[in-house]
Design a protein around this nucleic acid. Structure first.
Length: 315
RNA sequence: GGCGCGGUCGCCAAGUGGUAAGGCAAAGGUCUGCAAAACCUUUAUCGGCGGUUCGAUUCCGCCUCGCGCCU
């Protein structure tokens, strides 16, 4: 019966940008008969290749990679959407008896997949537009007050200035016709049938920053600016979601002659450093993580990782 | 050697005789469908010494460093 699924192993290589997740993922896949599944909100987008750090053909070494290039520039990536894609992909892995190796940079997406999401309504752009318009007309604390009336408990947890989270909370309350806190309390449906083995990569911050800087330069040398240029030339709106990603927004500004390339380079490096910091903050809280204090391409880390996985019954 | 200006957190920078705005960076953190996002918190005793004063970062003197000008 399909509802009595055998527990299969699922590997998740978790780490901040430039920590070598992809390298470790491929390395493990080669040795364990696995395939790589990206868990990254930006690699989902077709056409945005260099700056999102998609592994090149040679980096992939013949190992199949999934959940890369599955969205067009006008699509909206969401945690729930990712979960759907990943769930059906996992069914496929189950049938083919292959080991899924997730390389995760977007912690929220992994959590959405593994722990599930509450039964909440999807985004509604119309409702959001209305709320934003209303917020414009009223005083600054309007949205927070509104949420306070709908769900005092949720309002307490969200900062009055955090428009993004306030909008979502109000949206859920309105669409679900009940407080978001209540919806959340109703629980979520976690991933079933898979045993998740999490490998966490945390290189020393100084070293990580060095890699981030070097990688930014390498990406620029590989023609990142030209990539952005041809994306824009292809008729894509400058407002398309992927142009908000680190680097793409800076390079777009260069092409619009708002900043110099040198300034963009520094801004990209800095934004990436901060991004890595936020990722690390998120990952630190992740439960059941097996930590390795180095890079994924480090032989010592690789040996340690496979050793651990084998001890867990893999291979 | 003389004259002038200036030395306030890693950087930029306001300011006052009663114990020092802000911005950026940094660090820490939050997070259930925009997450490469959004948001929150934290961070100086004002170049050194002495004087005036109830009290000086703010006034005075000396020293020191930087910048500019002059001989």
């Amino acid at each position: 019966m399909s509802d009595a699924k055998v527990l299969l192993p699922l590997v998740a290589v978790v780490g901040p940008t430039a920590s070598g997740k992809s390298a470790l993922g491929v390395w493990l896949a080669e040795r364990l008969g696995g395939e790589v599944v990206a868990c990254d909100s930006t690699q989902l987008y077709r056409g945005f290749d260099i700056g999102t750090g998609k592994p090149s053909t040679s980096d992939r070494r013949g190992i199949p990679h999934h959940l890369i290039d599955v969205l067009g520039p006008k699509d909206e990536a969401t945690a729930g959407g990712y979960r759907q894609l990943a769930l059906s992909l996992l069914e496929d892995f189950r049938q083919r008896k292959r080991l899924p190796i997730f390389t995760v940079g977007t912690g929220l997406y992994l959590r959405a997949l593994v722990e599930g999401l509450a039964e909440v309504p999807q985004r509604s752009e119309e409702l959001r537009a209305r709320l934003r318009a209303a917020a414009e007309e009223h005083s600054p604390g309007y949205l927070h007050c509104l949420l306070k009336r709908l769900d005092p408990e949720a309002a307490q947890k969200i900062a009055p200035a955090d428009e993004q989270k306030l909008l979502r909370a109000i949206e859920v309350c309105v669409l679900a016709r009940k407080p978001i806190s209540e919806v959340h309390r109703a629980g979520r449906v976690p991933l079933e049938g898979w045993r998740v083995l999490k490998i966490g990569l945390i290189p020393p911050r100084e070293k990580l920053n060095e890699r981030i800087h070097a990688r930014t330069d390498a990406m620029l040398e590989r023609g990142w600016l030209q990539e952005v240029q041809s994306l824009l030339a292809s008729g894509l709106s400058e407002e398309a979601k992927p142009f908000d990603f680190i680097g793409y927004r800076e390079l777009r500004a260069v092409l619009q002659e708002k900043i110099s390339l040198a300034a963009a380079r520094e801004a990209i490096q800095q934004a990436t450093r901060r991004y890595a910091k936020r990722q690390i903050t998120w990952f630190r809280k992740e439960s059941g993580m097996r930590w390795f204090p180095g890079f994924g391409d480090d032989p010592g880390v690789q040996a340690g990782a496979i050793e651990w996985l084998q001890a867990e019954g893999l291979g």
